[in-house]
Amino acid sequence: MLMFLLRRLAVALSVVLTVSVIAFLLLHLSGDLALAIAGPEASPEQVAQVRAQFGLDRPMIVQYGAWLADAARFDFGRSFYFRDTVAALVVQRMPVTLTLGAISLGVALVIAIPLGVLAAVKRGSWIDRAALIFCALGQAIPTFWLGLSLIILFAVNLRWLPVSGSATWAHYVLPSVALGWYAVPAVMRLTRNGMLDVLASDYIRTARAKGLRWPQVLFKHALRNAVVPVVALAAVQFGFMLGGSIVVEAVFSMQGLGHLAWEAIARKDFPVVQAVVMLLATIYIGLTLLADLLNAWLDPRIRVA
């Protein structure tokens, strides 16, 4: 178990390092940094001064080392556009995105798991078919269009919820549905298939042979086993949601990390982009690691080895 943990940790760390190289190159492929920092009106002398001041005249590998050392201390330098450090911007915008992601994941799981269980139990019925059609539709609807349509319907026509922003919990309802929607099909299918496998297993027959009532067979014996892979998927989907929040935040004008990244990209503010890419990738890697651990913990065959 400990060896497994250490090995997974080593792989995760090296993936983070590789991503950091990509993020670093992203910044340095974007053109002459000194020119970008000094601004378009700067004289060649000023540009040269900036180059020396920021250490941009050093070899790439040295610059990468220095950047990585800073990044490890959560120092991503200063934004070219916003008059602030990148770290401060990220810290300021992070809560909105994390809240959005968490609520979206909750929405997705609350819809997908019961639907998946129901579809498996009523396999082949109209409920099962409707759930599968719902899934196919879910995967085909673009998040941004769903978001806009939700705004038109619930914010403009019905006036139930605010159009945009992130001030109150009500502001999170529509964005969470739009973002969570995308994860529903995958989670539902996995729950349904997992339940179908488990329901056909010998130990479910044993549970029924004991005369256990159907809810106990279903929830204690079947769902407990079927839900194990769903936990891992949920962790991965949470990572995808943080990445996908850029679209939803743009649609709903929420001042989160995604919106920050979008603005930064449009303004070629690459230190910010770099930081967000690094952060999201690291969170994703951390989540997959967490998913592995959760899986191991949920499965006594791994936990009690």
Partner: peptide, 24 residues
């Protein structure tokens, strides 16, 4: 039938490896 099963009539299955729930 649920009340009979496990109480007055019981069954022992042939696959001991898979007939017990791994999670409990």
């Amino acid at each position: 039938k649920e009340n009979l099963r496990g109480d007055r009539m019981a069954m022992i299955f042939q696959e001991p490896m898979t007939s017990l729930n791994p999670a409990y």
